[in-house]
Lab assay of single mutants.
Amino acid sequence: MDALKSAGRALIRSPSLAKQSWGGGGRHRKLPENWTDTRETLLEGMLFSLKYLGMTLVEQPKGEELSAAAIKRIVATAKASGKKLQKVTLKVSPRGIILTDNLTNQLIENVSIYRISYCTADKMHDKVFAYIAQSQHNQSLECHAFLCTKRKMAQAVTLTVAQAFKVAFEFWQVSKEEKEKRDKASQEGGDVLGARQDCTPPLKSLVATGNLLDLEETAKAPLSTVSANTTNMDEVPRPQALSGSSVVWELDDGLDEAFSRLAQSRTNPQVLDTGLTAQDMHYAQCLSPVDWDKPDSSGTEQDDLFSF
């Protein structure tokens, strides 16, 4: 819950932080000083300027060897085509990944977070970031790969997607708890209302004896509580940590079903599988986004697919 609360507080303090972009060759504004600060901008989305290598189908939802083989196929196909790589912007948030063309600003792909089953910074092609997700059109699994400016960037994108998945799962947990509370309150309110109706004398007997209905007592009954809980029953509950912020979080049926399955089948359902080692994760978390744009010590960066 700490990640969720800190993310909400950060967004309320400075929503404009989320509009910064990394990996864009110096076009961005001043960047936060450390990885923790940038992680807090996830709610509205972190932007990464990358190059799209392509996509291939895979048979399993996750796995280092599986993704490595898929990336190898994608890279080989991209090299064989001889075409310049498409420059894209990857927007990562707890909602998922939005992929747009840098030149036309046209939407290429919009992947809900619950469809993503794996992401990684490839070991062999260490400047490549990739994720595996279920197609929104059918049940097939797709591996999408992107060329980053350097290994640090690939690791940073991988960690960002993993963190977005974690925050999304926490949102789901909060929403589920809130819905259970509202359902319980609604049920209790309905029981109270039913009890009051059972003990209320029939209207005919009131008229016969000349008694008047006590409207004041009726007004004191917990009807307002019942209506408050039943009027918006169809509205999706939102985490309290975000009250007053500009973010509107809505959970669709697909996300609810997917996270429910994860909660039942996995020990740590909030953790998205990645190909990063503990050492890689520690190294990337210690980086400032400013470091992502620094040239690798191995030599001059080449803006070309064939540089790796």
Rank of each mutant, 00 (worst) to 15 (best):
L287S: 00
L223W: 02
S175M: 01
A219T: 11
A145T: 15
Y283K: 01
R151V: 01
G194T: 01
Y114W: 02
T89Q: 11
D291E: 02
C119F: 00
L90M: 13
Q187T: 06
L276P: 08
S307K: 00
V174R: 00
D234I: 08
S298N: 00
R29T: 11
R13P: 14
L53R: 01
I97V: 15
K127G: 15
N268V: 03
R29C: 15
P289A: 01
E64L: 07
Q285F: 06
P289V: 07
A7P: 08
E109L: 00
Y283V: 03
N102K: 11
A145D: 15
G25V: 08
A70R: 03
A133W: 03
L272S: 01
M46V: 15
E177W: 02
H137P: 12
K87R: 13
C286G: 09
A228F: 07
P32F: 14
D291M: 00
F146D: 11
A241I: 00
G190K: 10
I98L: 02
L50D: 15
K176I: 09
V88M: 13
I12G: 10
A241E: 02
S14T: 11
M124F: 11
K123I: 12
V192M: 04
H137S: 15
D101N: 11
K87P: 13
G26C: 12
G96W: 06
R9Q: 02
L31Y: 05
A284W: 01
K91N: 15
Q187G: 04
Q187V: 03
K176N: 07
I74F: 10
E59H: 10
S224F: 10
F171M: 04
S175Q: 06
R261Q: 10
S6Y: 15
Q106P: 02
D280T: 09
D126Q: 14
V174W: 00
Q279I: 05
E180S: 14
S16M: 06
K152Y: 10
E301R: 04
S260W: 03
T200E: 03
I97A: 14
S6V: 12
S186V: 08
E64A: 13
Y114I: 08
H28S: 15
D304F: 08
C199G: 06
D183I: 06
R196I: 10
K72W: 14
Y131I: 08
L31K: 10
I74Q: 06
E59L: 10
H282N: 09
C119L: 09
A185L: 10
A7W: 13
T158I: 10
V161R: 01
G190E: 09
S298Y: 13
L66Q: 06
G299E: 05
A78S: 07
E250P: 02
A78W: 01
A219N: 08
A70E: 08
P239T: 14
L53Y: 13
E44K: 13
W292I: 00
D296N: 02
N105C: 01
M124N: 08
P202R: 00
Q20S: 14
D101K: 10
R29A: 08
A7C: 06
T120A: 13
I108F: 13
A10G: 08
T218K: 08
Q197A: 01
L272Q: 01
